[in-house]
């Protein structure tokens, strides 16, 4: 890669996370491109099977590596990471073997509604719901228009964490169409399991019940974490989402919600999903056209 390519990219910050972690912030700002770079770099590192690397954690605009410093000196890893960064460059031609997944959500469901009403005093706007507030500050005339934008384009899973199985999702739309909302003023002490939330520029599904600060928009009837590994999608891992997954959040009604929940209960539920080779170049060039194609793969024959 030529130097000219490198100068277009924000300068990555390499930092020690104590003696056991190396933390690399590729950019302070989120973008699809920076996440593609984080994924490309960490995928490459994983393929190299370097002794002393114990955990490789891609995240939204950064990544983190846990090492055993008795085996691998952090500086040695950092030199290699800088080389990989150059090799990956601006990710032209990068391909990602991934999958497209249908993820049902019920918007304005009774459970998250109950939760968000309980914590109105911790919210920026105690007199509206999280959806009404988020629609307004993003310049939408109505809640319905906002929901349409929110569910109108698929999402990239850009990071897993916080608690086991929780996916951060960034929408595959141009920067000017990205929705952004603040987190609660003070976090809630309760969030229902499988709540569909939004904070900063990211949508999440809360994998477990617990504290949380994201705006609450809805709830999924199906899990992202299955510690008992009862469901077929969890045979290989207790966690369903993978970084690089493309998820389409699809609005469902109460009837469909109950039907999915019953399938989960019976242990028969399986996510609708298709294998897909994703080309970041195309998602950056013409996201809407590419999204049509992606959804065609998921819902077509």
């Amino acid at each position: 890669m030529g130097r000219s390519v490198e100068t277009e990219l924000p300068q990555a910050r390499y930092s020690y996370g104590g003696d056991e972690f190396v933390f690399v912030e590729l950019s302070e700002a989120m973008s699809l491109k920076v996440n593609f770079r984080a994924m490309a770099i960490t995928n490459k590192l994983r393929d190299e099977n370097i002794e002393g690397v114990t955990d490789i954690c891609p995240s939204n605009a950064s990544y983190m590596i846990r090492i055993d410093p008795d085996v691998l000196h952090p500086d040695e890893l950092i030199s290699r990471l800088k080389e990989i960064d150059e090799e990956v460059g601006d990710i032209h031609g990068f391909e990602l073997n991934t999958r497209v997944v249908d993820v049902p959500v019920m918007i304005d469901d009774p459970w998250t509604h109950e939760a968000l009403m309980r914590f109105r005093d911790r919210h920026q706007d105690p007199d509206s719901t999280d959806l009404e507030y988020s629609a307004r500050i993003n310049g939408y005339d109505s809640k319905e228009d906002f929901i349409e934008a929110l569910l109108g384009s698929p999402w990239l899973v850009t990071m897993i964490g916080f608690v086991p199985g929780l996916p951060w999702c960034y929408q595959l739309v141009p920067p000017e169409e990205q929705i952004e909302v603040p987190k609660y003023v003070r976090p809630r002490t309760y969030t229902p399991e499988r709540a569909f939330g939004f904070g900063g520029g990211f949508a999440v599904i809360y994998s477990v019940e617990g504290a949380g600060g994201y705006q609450l928009f809805g709830r999924s009837p199906v899990p992202v974490l299955d510690v008992q590994q009862r469901l077929p999608d969890f045979r290989d891992s207790i966690v369903f989402p993978k970084p690089g997954d493309i998820w389409n959040y699809r609005r469902i009604d109460r009837e469909e919600f109950d039907r999915f929940e019953a399938e989960v209960e019976e242990g028969t539920f399986e996510y609708k999903k298709k294998d897909f080779v994703f080309h970041p170049d195309r998602a950056l060039e013409d996201p809407h056209a590419y999204n049509e194609e992606i959804l065609g793969v998921l819902y077509g024959d």
């Binding site: 104590g18 933390f23 950019s27 700002a29 954690c57 995240s59 983190m64 603040p182 520029g201 990211f202």
Partner: peptide, 18 residues
């Protein structure tokens, strides 16, 4: 920056070392 949220203590969500 984009994606971080409005509080000055907020960053674009990233990994936390132990």
């Amino acid at each position: 920056p984009a994606g971080a949220g409005s509080d000055p203590a907020n960053v674009v969500d990233f990994g936390y070392p132990i």
